[in-house]
Simulated assay, not measured.
Amino acid sequence: MVRTVRDALTDALNDLSEQKAFIHKLCESNFKGISPIRYRCIEGRGTYDIVDRIIKHYTEEDAAGVVIQVLEDINERQVSKILATDLEHIRNIGNGASDEVDKPVCKKAKYLEDTSCSAWEAIPYGQALRIHRICSDEEDRNRHLQTLKDALIRTGYGARLIDQQFQRATAKNRTDLLRRQTRDTVDRVPFVVQYFPGAEKLQHLLRSLQHVIDEDEHLAKAIPTPPLLAFKQPHNLKQTIVHSKLPSLQENSDHDTTQPCHSNLCKTCRIIDTDAIISRVNTIHQVHGTYSCNSANAVYLIRCRKGCPEAWYIGEIMQTLRQRMNEHRSTITRQDCSLPVGEHFSGHGHSASDLRVSVLQGGLHDTRQPRVAEQKLIAKFRTHEDGLNRDLGFMSHYL
């Protein structure tokens, strides 16, 4: 595919760390006496739409000059330089100039030197090196290299560049390539942050402030070199709804239930409900896993020992079941009727000894999972309609 001026302008705008400054300057600039583009025409638009608007407002040839001028005005000289070189390359191809080497202008990279084309060259070299290492037969290796060369040519690589990188790769001693490589240990202190857009700029910030650490005697010994910047993945929707661990498909056993912890000081052991199958009307729930008074990160069920049909309460816990039941027992003792459990079990003919508690689901390891499980089980047993739960849990405000 032939590279166009539109492609070069789009890539240049994508390379900007901040497009707002470019847009504001563009809407203030007069070029060859032509009135500037109105801000409302490109506000909130994508890069492709902005480039399309620039080309329509000016000509395609003038659009390149406008963008370069604006980039210079906002001190994006590196992007301006790359764009100018890219446009010159496009013009040379359009004028029929030889493109035998086919060494395209390298775009501004985030992890390479800005003016380096090593990324473009590294792909054929790396793939050829891999084939050279894997194939022990020279004829078989050459056949795979030819297949790779045909594929690279179809993507826009020049034959001369491919041959140069293939020759460089095959010149390596295959014995050395098969030998296990040992990496040098890095003594730099890791500085781990959650990734966010623009986090790459922290590297420059760490280096520029290294002198503050060097001036302190103790810090200079602990961190003699700039810290090693590393990013961890932020929590996303996939991690919330997709789990690598599948639920157990084994049949319920006698051990899948809630058992007392048998501690001498534990008051929750007396009210533990050991039923492995919980049923209500036409709803049946099997308990999977073994739980006790010390279980945490779970969803629990409270029922009345006297069999009150409406006395069903489902809740979620991050602390242990014992701690949560102590809180419920306290509300009953204080006759706190503002809470549903305290209201029922402090009423006439009831006491804290009428509590029965069991774990419905456990092994929930973050703050979201117990809340989601709680909501599902409340809806399953309908305890928000015919029970002590007053709503569906943490999503009640959105339903």
Results as ranks from 00 to 15, higher is better:
His365Gly: 03
His365Lys: 15
His365Tyr: 12
His365Pro: 00
His365Val: 02
Asp366Pro: 03
Asp366Gln: 08
Asp366Asn: 14
Asp366Val: 02
Thr367Ser: 15
Thr367Asn: 15
Thr367Glu: 15
Thr367Tyr: 14
Thr367Lys: 12
Thr367Val: 11
Arg368Trp: 12
Arg368Pro: 00
Arg368His: 11
Arg368Glu: 10
Arg368Asn: 11
Gln369Asn: 10
Gln369Thr: 13
Gln369Pro: 00
Gln369Ile: 04
Pro370Cys: 02
Pro370Ile: 01
Pro370Glu: 00
Arg371Asp: 10
Arg371Gln: 12
Arg371Ala: 14
Arg371Trp: 01
Val372Met: 11
Val372Trp: 13
Val372Asp: 13
Val372Leu: 14
Ala373Pro: 09
Ala373Lys: 06
Ala373Val: 04
Ala373Leu: 04
Ala373Asn: 08
Glu374Lys: 07
Gln375Tyr: 12
Gln375Glu: 13
Lys376Thr: 08
Leu377Tyr: 06
Leu377Ala: 06
Leu377Gly: 00
Leu377Thr: 02
Ile378Val: 07
Ile378Glu: 09
Ala379Val: 04
Ala379Glu: 13
Ala379Leu: 15
Ala379Asn: 12
Ala379Arg: 11
Lys380Thr: 04
Lys380Ser: 07
Phe381Cys: 07
Phe381Met: 02
Phe381Tyr: 03
Phe381Val: 02
Phe381Glu: 05
Arg382Gly: 05
Arg382Val: 06
Arg382Glu: 07
Thr383Gly: 10
Thr383Arg: 01
Thr383Lys: 05
Thr383Tyr: 05
Thr383Phe: 04
Thr383Ile: 09
Thr383Trp: 05
His384Val: 03
His384Phe: 12
His384Glu: 13
His384Lys: 07
His384Ile: 04
Glu385Asp: 11
Glu385Leu: 15
Glu385Cys: 09
Glu385Pro: 09
Asp386Ala: 14
Asp386Tyr: 12
Asp386His: 13
Asp386Glu: 11
Asp386Ile: 07
Gly387Phe: 01
Gly387Tyr: 01
Gly387Trp: 02
Gly387Ala: 04
Gly387Arg: 00
Gly387Glu: 01
Leu388Ile: 06
Leu388Val: 03
Leu388Lys: 03
Leu388Trp: 06
Leu388Gln: 04
Leu388Cys: 05
Leu388Ser: 01
Leu388Tyr: 08
Asn389Val: 05
Asn389Thr: 08
Asn389Arg: 04
Asn389Ile: 05
Asn389Tyr: 01
Arg390Ile: 07
Arg390Lys: 11
Arg390Ala: 05
Arg390Asn: 10
Asp391Pro: 10
Asp391Leu: 05
Asp391Glu: 05
Asp391Met: 05
Asp391Ser: 06
Asp391Val: 04
Leu392Pro: 00
Leu392Met: 12
Leu392Phe: 10
Leu392Ala: 14
Leu392Cys: 09
Leu392Ile: 14
Leu392Gln: 14
Gly393Arg: 01
Gly393Ala: 02
Gly393Asn: 01
Gly393Glu: 00
Gly393Tyr: 00
Gly393Pro: 11
Phe394Thr: 10
Phe394Ala: 10
Met395Gln: 11
Met395Cys: 08
Met395His: 13
Met395Glu: 11
Met395Phe: 12
Met395Asn: 13
Ser396Asn: 13
Ser396Asp: 10
Ser396Phe: 08
Ser396Gly: 02
Ser396Trp: 08
Ser396Arg: 09
His397Gln: 15
His397Thr: 15
His397Ile: 14
His397Lys: 14
